[in-house]
Simulated assay, not measured.
Amino acid sequence: MRMLTRQKRGCRPFVFDIPLLLLLPLFFLPPAVSEALAETLYVQPSAEVPIRSGQGTDYKILAVVPDGLAVTVLEEADPWVRVRTQGGTEGWMLKRYLSAEPPLSDRMTALQTRNEKLEQEYDRIRLEMEALTTAYSQSQQELNACFADRDEVRSNYQALRTDTADVIAIRKNLDDTVRENQFIKQQLAEIEAEKKKLEKNTSLKWFLAGGLVLITGWVLGLISGKSRRRKSSLY
């Protein structure tokens, strides 16, 4: 074991045991720290248990505690323990009357309190579930409405596509009709030009025919005049 030696002038050397040095602060702990390290036990169901001023039945009874009372154990000297009651009385009592388990009444009270808290928690969860159920129902209705709107949009889209196809077909027919009209107009223009050309040629023919008739008449007139003159000369 390691030893620590301390030398004082004019004094005899002395030795400290290190483990003892480590335990020394425990003897100077403040009361609050000592109480924090103390154990709380409960008086077992039995007759009233006396708290005495010392370790023995011949010591003075300082108080009598009922069963179920919680006491703080300050010191143990088997079979006795030094305790402090909630009222501040300190003394010695037999350890066999103490138990780490709370009394049945306290446990029942704790269970009832816990049961009440669980019931409150159950009510809170039930209300939240009802609210969630209502919100879910509303969301489902809104979702169904969205589905209905989607189906309507799809139907309108299909109808629009059909109408668009019809419009395209009508536009194509209209374009074909316009082109056909233009072709007919062109044909009519050509026919009109041909007609005018024929009319012009016909007029020219009639003019030539008239001129030819006139010349023929003139020639016939000359021939007829000569014939008359010849006949008159013969007579």
Rank of each mutant, 00 (worst) to 15 (best):
I125G: 05
F14P: 01
E39K: 06
D175I: 03
Y42W: 08
E152A: 13
K185C: 11
T216Y: 06
F16T: 04
S46Y: 04
D67C: 01
D78A: 04
A77H: 06
L24G: 00
M108D: 06
P31W: 13
Q112G: 13
L174Y: 15
R179K: 15
N173P: 03
K117H: 05
L204E: 05
E190H: 08
L204I: 00
F183Q: 14
Q138H: 07
D176L: 04
F16G: 04
T89W: 10
E101K: 04
F14C: 14
M108I: 02
Q86N: 03
L208T: 00
Q112W: 11
V213R: 07
G56K: 09
E180I: 00
V178R: 03
D17K: 13
E116I: 09
Q138M: 10
P79L: 05
Y122K: 15
G10C: 09
A193R: 13
I61T: 13
K195F: 15
V178D: 06
P103N: 02
L41N: 02
R161D: 12
V81S: 00
G210Q: 13
R107F: 09
V81F: 03
I18L: 10
G221W: 01
L104N: 02
L127I: 02
A77F: 10
V43T: 07
Q112N: 15
Q182F: 05
L74K: 08
L94T: 03
R171S: 09
G225L: 01
T177C: 12
K200P: 06
P31Q: 15
A148T: 14
A169S: 05
L94E: 10
N144K: 13
D175F: 11
E130R: 14
T5E: 04
T134G: 01
I125W: 10
Q55K: 11
L222F: 10
R6I: 08
R126A: 14
Q182I: 15
E35L: 14
D163W: 02
L222A: 03
I168E: 06
Q186T: 08
L20G: 07
V219Q: 08
T57S: 10
A131N: 08
L220R: 02
K200V: 15
T162H: 00
D176Y: 12
K8C: 05
D78Q: 00
K117G: 11
S224K: 05
Y59C: 08
M108A: 14
T57N: 06
T133F: 15
G56A: 12
P102K: 05
R9D: 13
E75I: 04
A70F: 01
L188F: 08
L132P: 06
S46R: 04
A193T: 15
A100S: 05
R82K: 13
